[in-house]
Design a protein around this nucleic acid. Sequence first.
DNA 1: ATCTTGTTTC
Length: 534
Amino acid sequence: MNKFPVIPCSFRLLSIGSYVELIENKGRDRLLSGGRVLHAHLVTSGIVRWTRIAAKLVTFYVECGKVADARKVFDGMPKRDISGCVVMIGACARNGYYQESLDLFKEMNNEGLKLDAFIVPSLLKASRNLLYHEFGKMVHCRVLKCSFESDAFIVSSLIDMYSNFGELGNAKKVFDDLGEHDLVVFNAMISGYANNRQSDEALSLIKDMKLLGIKPDIITWNALLSGFAHTGNEEQVSEILEMMCLEGHKPDVVSWTSIISGLVHNFQNGKAFDAFKQMLTHGLYPNSATITTLLPACTTLANVKHGKEIHGYSVVTGLEDHGFVRSALLDMYGKCGFISEAMILFRKTPKKTTVTFNSMMFCYANHGLSDKAVELFNQMEDTGEKLDHLTFTAILTACSHAGLTDLGQKLFHSMQSKYRINPRLEHYACMVDLIGRAGKLVEAYEMIKAMQMEPDLFVWGALLGACRNHGNVELARIAAKHLAELEPENSGNGLLLSSLYANAGSWESVVGMKKMIKKKKFRRFLASSWVETV
DNA sequence: ATCTTGTTTC
């Protein structure tokens, strides 16, 4: 680990194949500095002019989060033909730089390059992850127009995209329209079912493929494993593990990462760490995906120690430069209260994505640094990064914490009119808090009444809190009534209402409330918190 | 050259 690649003496150059292998050998050469040394050598020796070499360098830089450097190599490629674009766009789409890959495609399109079958899977992947339903469907239309619909690479990507949109019917249609199914297409469909909680359908497809003489591979089993792990059904996970072992497939890093991911998402952090240790005892090494899965478990434990260990491992292995790892690290430090660490990581991220910005904005918003959050939001708008619903949750949270009523209202409006993002419950909760804080209680209540969905306890809670601060007994009563229905076991709301009565001098109501609280045997739990020393 | 398994922000 942490070794520089072996740079051969310039008198005896290696073969092109050996250089490709050197760049690809990420285990040893992943370190960005090592890659740069190799790159320098390739430039001075002129080898970089080989398209295969340049293509590998492009991929290498994107994997290290250096999209701009990759772009430089790409632009310097002697023949800027379609295959170069395939590599650049594909590398971006595989590493989370979805917007970048679509922008590149548009640029390419403007230069008059035709849509190529090799580009399509990457476009579908970007659409899938950005949830660009319309664009994805437009690509699908062009696939049909170009008669690419029997290309297995494209079909599997289409199935994957529609499954991720939750449109299983469309996924199934694409699957059925294809006459002959190979292993990859089966795997895509099985994964779609598994991820949409249709385990029976997934298992019956395995039977179908076996009847056709196609043997499930490790990817098939991992697809099932991941689907079941996320439903939190630990027994089913064990069953699949047994089945795959019987068929001669040992769990690999992906299998373990799925198991860990399922446990983390089901709030079983202790078990997640146990599984991680078990993986290590099997002689498997964590990669970027394993690390990104495990880091969120370090934030909810309020235990930055594990997080720092993982960070150390990432630095040594060069994984720290990976885009996903970087944003997970940033978030982990932010949640643990290490804001300056988070800021350093943010500054060190050359190609920032929506997730990078969102994570940093949440960090600022949750620590009361609203000005900084607003600054980032403006930066996002200026750089043309995609804003999503979480961007607005973050910025509205910041506005409500800082009492930036006008700005918050302006942004809430532009979220809908300019960015076409439908407000969700958390956005409404922020807005009710924001408007209520400014004392416009009736206006806040009107907003709740105009909501297209059922308000949740955070929305009513925001109104109740505002009523307490501004002494509006009438609206408080309404809010408290809804809260009592939504969470009857919580005595906090009743107490809040009674303190409000007390402030308003309505002592009879206070006595009534206290009686009710006593009658329902509410208990006040002592709040507590702890932080482990590092 | 492109595809299917695992991965970050609520």
